[in-house]
């Protein structure tokens, strides 16, 4: 079998690897299946027929319609969007840092977005919109601080990771302090938000997130080509005609925006940004950044994790962040041992 084919579609002419295509289709199929399962499952279980009827408002079961359209579907769509955003953000920062640990949840951007949100919840008693705005501001503020601290006439990946871990630890402390100092109700809201969950996702959350991603994800896909070339070092990238500094700035802005939007929608969900791009790469075996495969992998992971979080101890609902956190912890141990072995 040929390893790649050229696909021509009007002005579009791209090279497609059959293996990457297969992986992409398989991930899409998994997302569809998980979506159907997630919409059917719950304390008010539905059959496929009932689900479809409720979906198109055709059935005579108003309760089914309420659960499917009002509760389960927005939750599922939100999980898919958040997973997509987190994974794309990870797929941007890991190659930029030149290190699989250089993902936004490790280097403090997710924690910083949480700090921004917590400030809104605990100090200003802000509603969902203010909380989301706080998360975005927190994410960008943290990114700025981490980059300024890590910058020494150029950006060394390992430095970025270490500085980021330090900043994350400090912000983690700030977050705890904010929760401890808050009033009881605010603290409860904050704790719930901090665990990361889709329990309260509504169509308006979906709409805002989808709107942001409609801009950010295509930008990430376009930028992933020069990003892949920049992993050869700045000079080699300049040599083949990449404007390295403006491209890097654009990547940082898009990457921070992605993780901030995701955090604003669902709270800090750990490890998806870290694991999804690596897992996708392992499956496709493709040499580039693989933004699309990473995004699909992230969507699939968050959707599956949320399903587990909902159903594992039903009717008790776990926050999805607990599930991704436990899975991600195992993954992190694996990455670290691999890195050590390689460097040893």
């Amino acid at each position: 079998m040929k390893r790649k084919r050229v696909l021509v579609l009007g002005p579009l002419s791209v090279r497609v690897r059959p293996r990457s295509l297969t992986v992409g289709i398989a991930l899409l199929a998994a997302i569809v299946v998980l979506t159907v399962v997630a919409v059917m499952a719950g304390d008010y279980p539905l059959t496929i027929g009932q689900t479809l009827a409720a979906l198109f408002s055709a059935g005579d079961d108003p309760l089914a319609q309420f659960f499917v359209q009002g509760q389960r579907l927005p939750r599922v769509v939100c999980a898919v969007l958040v997973g997509l955003a987190l994974a794309c953000s990870g797929a941007i920062f890991q190659p930029l840092a030149g290190n699989p640990l250089g993902s936004p949840d490790i280097i403090g951007f997710t924690v910083g977005a949480a700090t921004g949100a917590l400030v809104q919840i605990t100090l200003f008693d802000g509603g969902p919109a203010a909380t989301a705005l706080g998360a975005v501001l927190g994410g960008f503020g943290t990114a700025l601080v981490v980059y300024l601290l890590a910058w020494r006439s150029g950006l060394a990946g390992f430095r970025l990771v270490l500085v980021g871990i330090g900043v994350a630890a400090v912000l983690q402390g700030v977050n705890s302090l904010l929760v401890v100092r808050a009033s009881l109700t605010a603290a409860q809201t904050a704790a719930q938000w901090l665990a990361g969950s889709f329990n309260t996702s509504t169509w308006s959350d979906v709409a805002i997130t989808a709107l942001a991603l409609a801009v950010l994800v295509p930008a990430a896909v376009v930028l992933s080509r020069p990003l892949g070339a920049m992993t050869m070092g700045d000079e080699a990238a300049i040599g083949i005609g990449i404007r390295v500094e403006p491209t890097r700035l654009a990547l940082v802005i898009v990457g921070v925006a992605l993780v901030s939007v995701a955090t604003a929608a669902a709270g800090p969900i750990a490890f998806v940004a870290l694991a999804a791009p690596q897992l996708a790469r392992r499956l496709t075996g493709a040499p580039g950044v693989g933004m699309i495969a990473a995004g699909l992998m992230g969507a699939m992971l968050v959707l599956a994790s949320d399903l587990v979080a909902q159903r594992l101890f039903a009717p008790t609902q776990l926050p999805v962040g607990v599930v991704t956190g436990s899975l991600g912890g195992l993954y992190l141990i694996w990455v670290l041992t691999r890195e050590w072995r390689r460097n040893a």
Partner: peptide
């Protein structure tokens, strides 16, 4: 990757 300067947003790979 050396082909990058000859490629565009849509025309990413040609014969």
């Amino acid at each position: 990757r050396g082909r990058y300067p000859h490629q565009g947003l849509l025309r990413q790979w040609t014969p």
